[in-house]
Design a protein around this nucleic acid. Structure first.
Lengths: 296, 296
DNA sequence: TTTCGTTACGTTAGTCGTAAAGATT
DNA sequence: AATCTTTACGACTAACGTAACGAAA
């Protein structure tokens, strides 16, 4: 394979047809151009240029080489440009996902702070579907997201817990439990849980929609649904109950739906998740900002 | 632009996915590969490989680069191969032209001698059309030819005179001159010369088919013909005369055609002609052999 | 005589291998 | 503990510029 300097010297000389100007353009001495071309000619096995002190022009073999080499080198440089652009995009663009409005609030603040800190970068924020909580990360559409733990996947990294929220049972007003101020996990055996259907990992699904109470009693499940508004409607219509963050009461009030704190349930943990192979500077910095913002 | 070693290291590593094997294949140390890849990553602006001591694999940016770079480099190598092949052909192939059978004899002997001397080379010999004596050279079909002088063209080189042949007038047996043993240039005024029409230079045309005798009398010209056999037929039919080498009498006898030596005409000079920009080793050697062969 | 391309030579930058260190399974 | 990548460092190659030389118009 040809050396970079050989390629550049040859192509430039073939276009300029002047050793001195070629040397100038490449910031080299004329002697070096002469030697380099000579080396290339030795390698190819024939003179590539007819030259006198008055004129330089391509030989037939030189023309053959030029015709084939020029577009190949153009492609090569385009390849580098493309990759460099992709690298720059990766360095400066960050797409952040969030699952709930309170995650969204935090992420938006952190995004603004990141852009103040790194003026060149370009943060975009989007909500993720409850039914497919990890798909955006895996497809590369989302670089990092703030969403519900537990997440324990080989291709993903879960950061520290950013904040927690107590859990609540959502029941219809006609439900016997609706009169209580709060409930315990054992009470879940009396309700029909409506889980969200999705391709979340099984352990995630089981954690958020348990099948048994701590004492081992079975918790009946209703038909799974795909979207959050649908769940709310079903609960309001007395078709079942569901478990969510207590905080959702303030963001998703619904007529006929009561939020009951579950006294003995672990709070829901929220944290950052990103792809193990996506460890860019902006991503790291964003994660730090979120951790810091959550401390306050 | 990328250095050769960067390209080779990147492509090989992208295919082998192993620093040690890449180093082996490129006859370098693993350290060098590591440094080279690192330098390339600095230039592109992002990691090209995910690597641990157990696995090496392309990042998204690395994949982008590989996909675009691989075909470009293939084209580049093809370009070099093509040019090298063209150079080799030019170094080892020689196509020799000749105008007359006696030129052909000499050229064939010289060609055989050349192949004995340079066993790798490949000589081919072909007759050139009288009507287009220089076209083969200019189109590149013929590398060197042995033919009639004078030739004085800026893009062609004429070697030394290899041999000379006396000139003769060819007349029909019914022509008044047919009874003579020989003629002089002044006698040409009594005949109708049949010239060969072609794109030979004007001075060549005028030299071989003069328009005036030495004393200035006009020599009538008949309609030009394109091929030598046609000329012979026309002369045999008494439709005119023509001028050729006296030696042609032995190679091209024709019923009804008489060859008359022209006593005071300069002999026809034969020599080698080649393109000024086609100065290969084989060509030069062939010319030397022809000169030497003519001396004997 | 001028303008270039080429050659010669001394200098230096950068590439290379060796070997030790660091990381990962 | 073993394997593989990375880093450190010293040696040496070859790329480079300067300047003199040579060829061509």
């Amino acid at each position: 394979m040809l050396e970079r300097i050989e390629i550049e010297a040859f192509l430039t000389l073939a276009e300029v047809l002047h050793f001195g100007r070629t040397a100038e353009r490449l910031h080299l001495s004329p002697g070096r151009i002469s030697q380099t071309i000579k080396a290339l000619e030795r390698r190819i096995g024939a003179p590539l240029f007819h030259r006198t002190s008055r004129s330089v022009r391509l030989t037939d073999v030189g023309q053959t080489l030029y015709t084939a080499l020029r577009p190949a080198v153009d492609d090569l440089e385009r390849a580098v440009t493309t990759a460099t652009a992709a690298a720059h995009r990766q360095r400066t663009r960050l797409t952040v996902g969030f699952s709930t409005p309170w995650c969204g609030d935090l992420v938006i603040v952190a995004g603004d702070r990141l852009q103040e800190e790194l003026p060149g970068c370009d943060v975009s924020i989007q909500e993720i579907q409850l039914s497919q909580p990890l798909q955006g990360l895996r497809s590369g559409e989302i670089d990092i997201q703030l969403s519900e733990f537990p997440i324990n996947e080989p291709d993903l990294v879960a950061g520290p817990v950013i904040f927690t929220e107590p859990r609540a049972l959502l029941v219809g007003t006609s439900d016997p439990l609706a009169a209580c101020d709060s409930i315990t996990l054992e009470d879940l055996a009396q309700t029909r849980l409506i889980p969200v259907r999705g391709n979340a990992p099984d352990y995630w699904q089981a954690y958020h929609y348990p099948a048994h109470t701590p004492s081992g009693r079975r918790i009946p499940h209703a038909r799974p649904v795909t979207y959050w508004p649908e769940t709310l409607s079903l609960v309001g219509a007395g078709r079942g109950s569901t478990i969510a963050s207590l905080r959702a009461a303030r963001y998703h009030p619904h007529p006929g739906v009561v939020y009951l704190p579950i006294e003995d349930a672990d709070p829901i943990r929220y944290g950052l998740i990103w792809r193990a192979d996506n460890r860019t500077e902006v991503l790291h910095r964003f994660a730090q900002i979120v951790v810091k913002a959550a401390d306050v």
